[in-house]
Design a protein around this nucleic acid. Structure first.
Lengths: 239, 239
DNA sequence: CGACACCTTGAAGAGGTTCAAGAAATGTGG
DNA sequence: CCACATTTCTTGAACCTCTTCAAGGTGTCG
């Protein structure tokens, strides 16, 4: 397992998804090292990029936690996602040469900057990278379909259940507990993401706690009955 | 039984500007003609592809009108978009090798089949195509952000206004009237897309008609006061 | 032309929002 | 390290928007 030791370390790295497509030759792997130029530290509360910023790179999260949100001139605001280690941000900027949403660190974070020009160049040389980039974008499209389903057809309890299950599942993938999590975002941000008011989020947490499904202490959540959450989301439709 | 092998050439297609990159050399344009292998006719009500189908091509709409929708086991259903001539469908299938949504023709339609393998191969040779594919996917991501904003933060009248404005704008781009349109979808499908019940859609249409903003005769809509629709969407936020 | 899908409208009800107040955490400066 | 200011969270009560249920009307297609 000695040579794999490095690989194992990489598999914990945020860049794994982009840098480690399956079945790479050593040569190709070497080429991918050119992808990352800089790492950037983003203190909590600061934007990595903002709507209107010129687009020139994608970002892979190494550590930390982000939200992305779109804002309109008339003051409407929508959190479009929460991103954690290993996930890619900035895809929105490709189409128009400018970012169309804000990415804000919800805790101190570190990201790898992947200049877009290099991604394009390299993915012409390395088909596995090309394929990987496509998959990342497709995955984001499919994820957003899921959010549309949530926003378009679920009620408050279902939305919050789906949200918690999704978060804890992604955290579990990264080696964290399956039943305990610390929310990095406020009730208002959760509400914005779920299309609910912060009071409704708070009330729904309280209801889940009353029902013995979760234990909630501000931002610390312990899931006591994950099956109950699943049942709430996948409730046999009324009719 | 063989799908008639019409000689299809993007270089001659009048939708070229909608689905193909601009400013190509003659050589590159010639290469792109290899992209489209077949055209397929899809009768109204039939699926072009369904969730679970193996993914192997993207589809460019030549004529007709589609909806895409995701469905869950528990019978939930969400229309994720309506697509018209020049738009690309099937991006959801890239990530998992299978489609994750249904694409259904809402009127008799014709699509160009773009085998995904060829897209990958060709976009390694033709950077303009590579860039174009990325932009198409990014555009879809940005579009979905807009839908999330709509579903997460707008009320019924705002949603329907935004929907009508979006439709009429896209139709106008394709040479249709700026003020008149024929809805190809039912109230229920509109409702699913907008996260509303069909009755609410119907009522909101009636309200707009009462207010002299539109004229609605079943699926025929005439916009009488487009500014009013814009004001409804971009209303100075209540607080 | 008749059956069926689609649309409209009304009335009652539910779920979520709004407004308001207070409590708990977090951050700041002395 | 503590007091204070600020942000965040919780909870209650009234209200409102949208949904649900129901019935009847309209258009469309075989």
């Amino acid at each position: 397992m000695t040579p794999q030791a490095i690989k194992v370390a990489c598999s914990n790295c945020n860049l794994r998804e982009l840098c480690m497509p399956m079945g790479l030759s050593g040569t190709d792997m070497g080429k991918l090292d050119e992808l990352v130029t800089t790492r950037r530290r983003i203190p909590r509360g600061s934007p990595l990029f903002s709507s209107g910023d010129r687009f020139n790179a994608l970002y892979a999260i190494r550590t930390g936690f982000f939200k992305t949100c779109v804002t309109t001139e008339d003051g409407r605001d929508q959190v479009t996602g929460f991103q954690m280690a290993g996930e890619i941000m900035g895809l929105d900027g490709i189409v128009g040469d400018r970012h169309t949403c804000d990415a804000v660190a919800l805790e101190d974070a570190e990201v790898c900057e992947l200049p877009y020009g290099r991604i394009e160049d390299l993915s012409r040389e390395v088909p596995a990278l090309q394929s990987h980039v496509h998959k990342i974008m497709s995955r984001e499209i499919v994820r957003e379909h899921g959010v549309m389903l949530l926003l378009g057809s679920m009620r408050a309890e279902e939305r919050l259940s789906a949200f918690l299950l999704n978060l804890v599942q992604r955290l579990h993938t990264r080696g964290f507990s399956q039943s305990e999590l610390v929310l990095r975002m406020t009730r208002e941000e959760i509400g914005s993401y779920l299309g609910l008011k912060l009071e409704t989020v708070s009330r729904t947490f309280s209801k889940f706690a009353d029902d013995g499904i979760v234990e909630v202490k501000h931002r610390h959540v312990r899931i006591l009955d994950i099956e109950a959450l699943r049942n709430i989301v996948h409730a046999p439709a009324c009719r």
